[in-house]
């Protein structure tokens, strides 16, 4: 457990706390984004080798042990895009909800029901 891992755990818990306690739906999406970002950081951290080079081939290929692992980075790219898609869908649902109810606040929505 390094300092970086502690920060990632902190980010995850912060996001989770935001999702659980906030009543505004847009803030809840912010919370989910922070939770997801903490996992992305963990993925990139997993690939990292201290003193390593980016996984880009060039004519004088360096020592293989000194290259960071490219697979988690490829996964992170995919995860970023998936996260963006999820955020977009959730925000569009919030806009639709606002069109019907005129609010994005969970407490007010419960009263309307």
């Amino acid at each position: 457990m390094t300092f970086a891992h502690l920060i990632m755990l902190g980010l995850f818990l912060l996001g989770f706390w935001c999702v659980l306690t906030e009543t505004d739906l847009i803030k809840i999406v912010v919370g989910f984004n922070i939770m997801e970002a903490s996992l992305l950081l963990l993925l990139v951290k997993m690939a990292y080798v201290p003193g390593g080079r980016p996984p880009i081939l060039f004519p004088a290929a360096p020592d293989a042990a000194k290259i960071v692992d490219p697979i988690p980075q490829a996964l992170t790219l995919t995860a970023i895009v998936i996260g963006a898609a999820t955020t977009a869908l959730m925000l569009s649902l919030i806009v639709q909800l606002h069109r019907h109810y005129g609010t994005t606040d969970l407490d007010e929505l419960r009263e309307i029901r």
């Binding site: 847009i26 999406v29 912010v30 984004n33 970002a37 992305l40 990139v44 951290k45 690939a47 990292y48 080798v49 390593g52 080079r53 980016p54 996984p55 880009i56 960071v68 980075q73 992170t76 790219l77 970023i80 895009v81 996260g83 963006a84 955020t87 977009a88 925000l91 569009s92 919030i94 806009v95 606002h98």
Partner: peptide, 28 residues
């Protein structure tokens, strides 16, 4: 963390696109 390709995607998608989604949602 030596991931320049991921950083580019994050800068465009994570910082730019998602923020603009949020701003559009907020304005609507």
């Amino acid at each position: 963390y030596q991931a320049p390709d991921v950083a580019m995607a994050q800068a465009v998608v994570g910082a730019g696109l998602i923020t603009s989604f949020f701003v559009v949602t907020l304005s609507k």
